[in-house]
Amino acid sequence: MRASFVFSEVITGLRRNITMTIAMILTTAISLGLLGGGLLIVRTIGKMQANFLSALQVEVNLDDAVSAGDPNCTQSICAGLRADLTNYPGVVSVQFQNRNQTFAKAKAEFSNDPEMEQLVRPEAFPASLLVSLQNPTQSGVISAAFASKAGVRDVDDQGVFVQKLTDLLNGVRNATFLIALIQALAALMLISNTIQVSAFTRRTEVGIMRLVGATRWYTQLPFLLEAVVAGVVGAVLAVGGLVVAKVAFLDNIFGSVFSSTIIPKIGLLDIASVSPWLLLAAVGISALTGYVTLRLYVRL
């Protein structure tokens, strides 16, 4: 196989159909960019759940009577709740925290806000049972089962918030994947079409190649490579697009609005780790489309 020959054929082919080539590359790039965006969201959701949910505890806050009268959780209501929670399926551990301990924690949180620190009183805080779950996303179950029990004031379930956020991000992810898929179909048809046009423009060449006994592999490789080269260029553009999108938009939006740590920032490292998949998808899809097109639609 003469590499230089095949290479020059590929370049000639791509340049001959330059507008088509650009359309093919851009469509592929957009599709892959969206795919990459979707993958980044998947990573973000994963990180968010790992960072936040694993440390998350459901706080079962006890009512005033219990908070005031049972500082060690020894009386029947509190002890009963603790036992029920401990035996509840999916619960890993239950830890009691009395009113003063809750107060101390709150005070520590307000330490840089002296006015608030002055205002808070232990009586404003409930005693709590802090529940750690095997699967933190299932906090809602605890809330449903225990919120209305005797001695319970309310169940403070931050998992619900994280779950809502996760659902939202999942929705965005699905929409992104859907658009990526539609774009991928467009890219697929463009690739197929470009190869057919390319094969038609070069029918004399291909006819001669067949006649002098070039193998099928040799006649088809330039077309296949054309598609793959366009796919790879598309993938590179897509990765570039993701970096630009991160620096220009995401960093600004998340930097100001979400200064909290709930949604982890998307870093260059995240983009770097999804890019091989984009490249792989580009090469795989373009090569497969090329191969199928050559088999089905081009008589070489």
Binding site: R2, I208, V212, A214
Partner: peptide
């Protein structure tokens, strides 16, 4: 030369 290139003859 084309006829030889496409059947992989050495340069």
């Amino acid at each position: 030369a084309f006829a030889l290139e496409v059947i992989g003859k050495p340069r």
